[in-house]
């Protein structure tokens, strides 16, 4: 697998980006923990097309620009990125926070996107107003987060003492940027639920069957709310199936991509 990594500038914003594999473009949008442990998944997926994996502004090595303050802003930047790279027939894959960005892109303009896969996304409030749908990252200790978010805790790397200064800086930067985008309302945009009617592309919602950070029952609401979307659980995975079950997750995406458009809406359009 050949990987190219570098910085692209989109509308004045520097975005760190990796490209690996060949073929139809697959835009992978990472979760709030950044690109941590995503290599295996990208490798599995790059056999199916060219995986383009940007690091969201303020994540990884890049400092968050002043003007980028919301998931909405990031969605516009990535739509601009698709234009800039002239990508067509894009398979859009977003994990957790990345799933939120993906939905936000799809409701705005999906001309360059042909299919979307949401892996344990966040971004919408479905449950009771006095109860969180998604565990509060900022109110639980790390050990608790790992317990809730992973099926296999061994795959969670949170050994701060053993990390290099650079790695720690990335963790701190990712944490701060997540708060910038998702502190309040916590992990959702109140408008997004009412805009889902705009999604006309076939959509697959994948969910780790052992995700206790955001439970599968919460996840089913996405498939019910997005026109024609399918829902599929990934066994032996928590909130990050792309980390815990990289191959199975990639296989589910490939199978979905090979299948006939199942969305009634999509047939109508065709």
């Amino acid at each position: 697998m050949e990987t190219q990594a570098g910085i692209v500038t989109v509308a004045g914003t520097r975005i760190e980006m990796r490209r690996s594999g060949k073929g139809r473009p697959i835009l992978f949008l990472h979760p709030h923990i950044g690109m941590e442990h995503a290599d295996g998944f990208i490798r599995c997926l790059s056999g199916h097309g060219e995986v383009i994996a940007p690091s969201h502004p303020g994540f990884g090595e890049t400092v968050r620009p002043e003007g980028v303050a919301s998931i909405d802003d990031i969605a516009y930047l990535y739509l601009e990125l698709l234009d800039q790279l002239d990508l067509r027939d894009v398979l859009l894959v977003g994990s957790s926070l990345g799933g939120w960005i993906a939905m936000d892109m799809a409701v705005k303009a999906a001309q360059r996107i042909s299919r979307m896969v949401l892996i344990d996304p966040v971004g919408i409030k479905f449950g009771a107003r006095d109860k969180l749908d998604i565990a509060d990252l900022y109110a639980i200790p790390d050990a608790k987060f790992i317990e809730l978010a992973y099926h296999d805790r061994g795959l969670a790397r949170r050994d701060y003492a053993g990390m290099s200064d650079e790695e720690l800086l990335v963790v701190a930067r990712n944490t701060e940027s997540t708060a910038r985008y998702a502190w309040s309302p916590y992990m959702y945009d109140p408008r997004l639920r009412h805009l889902l009617y705009r999604i006309h592309i076939p959509t697959l919602v994948l969910w780790g069957n052992n995700d206790r950070f955001a439970a599968p029952d919460y996840g089913r609401h996405y498939a019910e709310s997005i026109p024609g979307a399918q829902f599929q659980e990934i066994a032996a995975a928590g909130h990050f199936p792309h980390i815990e079950q990289a191959q199975a997750t990639a296989d589910a995406i490939k199978a979905f991509d090979a299948g006939a458009p199942s969305a009634a809406k999509h047939k109508e359009m065709a």
């Binding site: 701060y160 003492a161 990390m163 200064d165 720690l168 800086l169 963790v171 701190a172 930067r173 944490t175 701060e176």
Partner: peptide
């Protein structure tokens, strides 16, 4: 971010 990283350790 620099101080937050130090405090993590």
């Amino acid at each position: 971010v620099n101080d937050a990283a130090r405090i993590l350790r």
